[in-house]
Design a binder for these strands. Structure first.
Length: 263
DNA sequence: ATGGCCTCGCACCGAGGA
């Protein structure tokens, strides 16, 4: 069994103790990180190597930033960034090849999809364009017929069952019909949402706002997702959120989540 | 009472987040 986790850490400098503690306690084989908020020259590569992980990263000063960790091996970088807008410098996509426990190749991408607020406006337009650019890349991966995992912070609440209050979020970019339609296109193309497979009734959250007592009230929503190619989906054994980690001191506003695939 | 926060940086406020 190979365990793949994704975690929007909201700043690696502020999260270092929580992140190392979580790696030690939950022992994922592969990790995708988002919102690293660090330039490549400041990325704490040594820290992860000391913890037993090879790591690649695509950073940017202050904002965004994605990374991929693999226990006991160096992820082989396949692609950083998405095609289609050469002037786009936001660090939101990183793709690697990593071996599972049986030595078979998995393709893994760490995704930090644009938030899109406020709406309407250029940020929402950028979100929708970025979703199409991701779709173009994802279709290429489907055509390769390989086990592929696209995971991370999609900034999309796919269904009404994925939010504590539909009315509270109705005007947010995360829940617009256009955002949901673009997400559904991935599913229509052949990707499957691992947490819908395992928890079809919903009510599983991955994010709780720092404000308005969202965590103590359990006012959360599901915006971090695992999309699995058909060959990866056939191997899905477990999926869960490490919810307890959201409640710790100096936690990220996202909880980590993971899948286990049969080797 | 969705209102309360958090992170980063040429920093002690402003921008961005969701």
């Amino acid at each position: 069994m190979t365990k793949i986790s994704t975690f929007n850490i909201n700043g690696i400098k502020a999260r270092t103790p929580r992140l190392l503690e979580w790696l030690d306690e939950t022992a994922p084989d592969i990790v995708c990180l988002q919102e690293v908020k660090s330039q490549d020259k400041d990325f704490p590569k040594d820290m992860f190597e000391k913890a037993g992980y090879g790591v690649i990263f695509h950073g940017q000063k202050s904002f965004n930033g994605v990374a991929i960790l693999a226990k006991g091996q160096e992820p082989k970088e396949i692609q950083r960034g998405l095609e289609g807008e050469p002037e786009d410098e936001q660090a939101r996509y990183l793709e690697a090849e990593i071996l599972d426990k049986s030595g078979n190749a998995l393709r893994v991408a760490s995704i930090y999809l644009p938030n899109g607020n406020p709406l309407p406006g250029p940020k929402f337009d950028y979100k929708l364009r970025w979703m199409q650019r991701l779709r173009n890349r994802a279709q290429i991966l489907l055509n390769e017929e390989i086990p592929a995992i696209l995971c991370g912070d999609y900034n999309v609440i796919p269904r009404d069952e994925d939010v504590f209050s539909v009315s509270a979020m109705a005007s947010d970019a995360l829940m617009q019909p256009e955002s949901r339609a673009a997400y559904r296109q991935y599913l229509g193309d052949g990707w499957s949402d691992a947490f819908v497979t395992k928890y079809p009734a919903g009510g599983v959250w991955t994010y709780w706002d720092y404000q308005a007592g969202a965590w103590p009230r359990d006012n959360g929503f599901r915006i971090d997702h695992f999309l699995l190619s058909p060959i990866a989906a056939d191997r899905l054994e477990h999926a869960a959120v490490d919810k307890e980690h959201r409640g710790r001191e100096k936690a990220s506003d996202h909880a980590p989540l993971w899948v286990q695939l049969r080797d």
